[in-house]
Nucleic acid binder design. Structure first.
Lengths: 129, 129
DNA sequence: CGAATATACATAGATTTATGATGTATTACA
DNA sequence: TGTAATACATCATAAATCTATGTATATTCG
């Protein structure tokens, strides 16, 4: 309760959430392609670390996404009891591996296209002036 | 009328619209920073060309965005009659130039972060396995 | 020891951004 | 002459994420 309030008072500067849209899925799939399996909280921590604190996935984004990816057969889930606490491990299904490849290549391609526009090579802005 | 139907039947493959989210604004601002002024239709064509047809901004996205950027003082608009047809030219305001710099650097920074995750350097995935 | 923090899951509702569908009208071209 | 291109506009809808909230266990530190 207190925590939530403090978090709101001291939001550390991340990216405007809009930029994230469409990138969460490939990011998560990429992580899962690097490890056998991961659980939700672990994914949040890993992304935070890999992005130097700049991308902090919210639970409200992550859990629904993991559920829907499981439902559509991209992921397979397995619940494990750690002491009295539950933990859900997710792994890529066979289909998930294909989805990952496609999702990543779309993202990579998209980034290239954006870069083409924001870092133009000489002559790209032929219409200039 | 016919056109609309055909367009729906032959949607040429662009990026899933979600990826675009958050990038349209910086892209448009970037274009406007390269030219004195542009009008809506011209922006759509320029983005299409610069992206080799991969990014086709829809009117339903562009015009409301241009309006809101004008309303918040980022852009200045000027209507011109071309024959009997109207054309609205947009240019960056002084404030708009600052907004452009900020918006572009946020996008560039964001892309770098994403690349860090999807093209990891040796050791980045220290947690691996 | 007790309180704060970290771990770990979950979901409902609000927000944001872009699109789809539609409308109007002029101009160019074949 | 009619089809495509130019050029504006708006409303309803969709999709993705976040905010806010809830629950509960485990760890750490003063």
């Amino acid at each position: 309760m207190y925590i939530r309030i403090i978090e709101r008072l001291m939001p550390f500067q991340m990216y405007s959430k809009e930029l994230l849209k469409g990138t969460l899925k490939p990011i998560i799939l990429k992580l899962l392609s690097e490890k056998e399996s991961m659980y939700g909280y672990e994914i949040v921590q890993a992304v935070k670390e890999l992005s130097a604190g700049k991308i902090v996935i919210k639970e409200g984004s992550l859990y629904p996404l993991l559920h829907s990816l499981t439902k559509d057969g991209t992921l397979e889930a397995e619940a494990v009891m750690i002491g009295k606490r539950i933990r859900k491990y997710y792994r890529l299904s066979q289909k998930g591996k294909t989805v990952t490849t496609e999702s990543l290549s779309e993202l990579q391609n998209f980034i290239k296209t954006i870069e083409q526009i924001i870092y133009p090579k000489e002559g790209d802005y032929a219409f200039k002036n």
